[in-house]
Design a protein around this nucleic acid. Structure first.
Lengths: 139, 139
DNA sequence: GTAATATACTTTGATAGTCAAAGTATATTA
DNA sequence: TAATATACTTTGACTATCAAAGTATATTAC
């Protein structure tokens, strides 16, 4: 007999896998690459960010990120701007076009969220939200 | 003011991003590639699977998967076996070494799950489990 | 029952993503 | 002020990926 912890672990992994498949399918459909959309998603959700921090969140080296950001600058999705207090650092920021792409992608996520929790009551949705907030806070 | 749906959407994305970073860090640490561990994770969680189905879950073409599986066969992590009723198909299956890797990786996930829900009561954990099960069922 | 079409997988050649290591510039510490 | 650390970029080699073409088996239409 499996413990609740065990089951919880597996449904979390399953949720992650399914979201990952979904993301991949959506992104491919739009003609953008996964790393590009991933970058937009993080910048859109968190605001301008240093290269170092962004690289960590994405899970690549700063070298890899430099070339990714170069491409995105050419596509006018992001800009580099100097860090106000540390001249070694650079802030990467979405352009208005980048924001547009973020909003567009976020709308798809919102639709998915709606579908996934369609059968939840308002109270259940609020509880689920609270659980996820607590989990995210521990990460 | 943001709606609960909006917040729920964003905490779900945040959870996904964080798990994704975590996975990347863990995998890199172990010296395996992300696609390799991802494949082991899916086979371990779901049992033997056709190439087509596996490719869809991972989010790559079958061409890409063929070369990935070739490598994993060489590493003795998986084997190919014929599909019993469709001779075009092939089942990919974890070897005992593959299972070992799966268990090892799963243990790390379990530990993470424990940490993330350390402050949950037993009842809350059960509720959270139930919510995630319902969400996964809608995917 | 056979021909046409569809499906599952593999192979191949080109492209994109990745890292490690070395290079440049700025910050911090001794 | 010198030594060391940090943030980013560049480079070269390697890995992952796809699209398209190839092979074998299934299914459908006639």
């Amino acid at each position: 007999m499996k413990s609740t912890e065990d089951k919880l672990n597996h449904v979390m992994v399953e949720f992650y896998e399914k979201l990952s498949s979904w993301e991949q399918a959506v992104v491919k459909d739009k003609g953008y690459s996964l790393p590009l959309v991933h970058t937009v998603e993080i910048l859109g959700g968190n605001g301008p960010m240093r290269m170092k921090e962004l690289a960590e969140k994405i899970g690549v080296t700063t070298g890899t990120l430099t070339v990714q950001i170069d491409k995105m600058v050419k596509l006018e999705l992001v800009t580099r701007k100097p860090h106000e207090s540390d001249r070694r650092s650079i802030l990467v920021e979405l352009t208005s076009q980048g924001h547009e792409l973020y909003e567009e992608h976020d709308a798809l996520h919102l639709q998915l969220t709606g579908e996934l929790t369609a059968k939840f009551s308002d109270e259940e949705r609020a509880q689920f939200l609270s659980f996820l907030q607590r989990v995210n806070a521990e990460f």
